[in-house]
Amino acid sequence: MRVMVLVKATEDSERGLLPTAEAMAEMGRFNDALSAAGILIDADGLKPSSHGKRIAFAGTDRTVIDGPFPATRELVAGFWLWEVADIAEAVAWVKRCPNPMPGPSEIEIRPVYTMADFQ
């Protein structure tokens, strides 16, 4: 099963606070372990929402909204795309993950739809 693993934003990540060299090295080791296990498909960090845009849809109308966006805890600061046997395996891997932020943080796991889900 394919899952998107979402690192939720924090006030620090929205301020553009970059991880320390030590934190980057620790996360690099975790990503290497994911890769060695054949789980990692893709991963990246996202710039703060102040660099982003949202497009609101209403019928045929489109409205561009400039960042930053409110509700920091609902924003995404980074992601992984993994191929795992099941959601329990994804949870086990996230539990091994170093804290992606300098303070308290959350990681969300969401299964990705497959074509079989639509049949």
Rank of each mutant, 00 (worst) to 15 (best):
E26V: 12
G52S: 15
W82I: 03
A43N: 09
N31A: 04
E74G: 04
E89A: 12
T20I: 07
E22V: 12
G103R: 14
A88S: 13
S50P: 02
P111H: 04
T60Q: 14
G28P: 05
G28Y: 12
D32G: 05
L81G: 07
G52P: 04
A58H: 14
A58P: 01
D61G: 04
W80H: 07
V84H: 01
F30P: 00
A71D: 15
G28H: 11
E108P: 01
E106L: 05
K47P: 11
M24K: 12
G67Y: 04
G78M: 03
A37I: 08
D44W: 05
V76T: 14
M24A: 12
D86K: 06
L34F: 10
L81H: 08
A58Y: 12
A58E: 13
A92Q: 10
I65E: 05
P68Y: 09
R62P: 00
E83C: 03
T60N: 13
A71M: 11
T72R: 04
L81E: 14
E106C: 02
F79N: 00
G103V: 06
P100D: 01
W80I: 01
S50C: 08
G28C: 09
V84W: 01
S50G: 12
S49L: 05
G59E: 03
R29S: 09
G52K: 08
D66N: 14
M24Q: 13
P100F: 00
W80C: 00
R54Q: 12
P19L: 09
A85I: 05
N31M: 04
A25G: 08
T72E: 04
P111K: 02
I109K: 05
A37T: 09
F30V: 04
A23G: 07
R54I: 05
W93H: 06
A85G: 07
T60I: 10
E106D: 10
W82K: 00
L34D: 10
E89F: 06
G45V: 09
K47A: 15
E106S: 14
F30K: 01
A23M: 14
E89N: 06
T20P: 07
E26S: 13
A43K: 11
R73S: 13
A23Y: 08
P19T: 11
V94Y: 03
G59T: 04
P100T: 02
A21F: 06
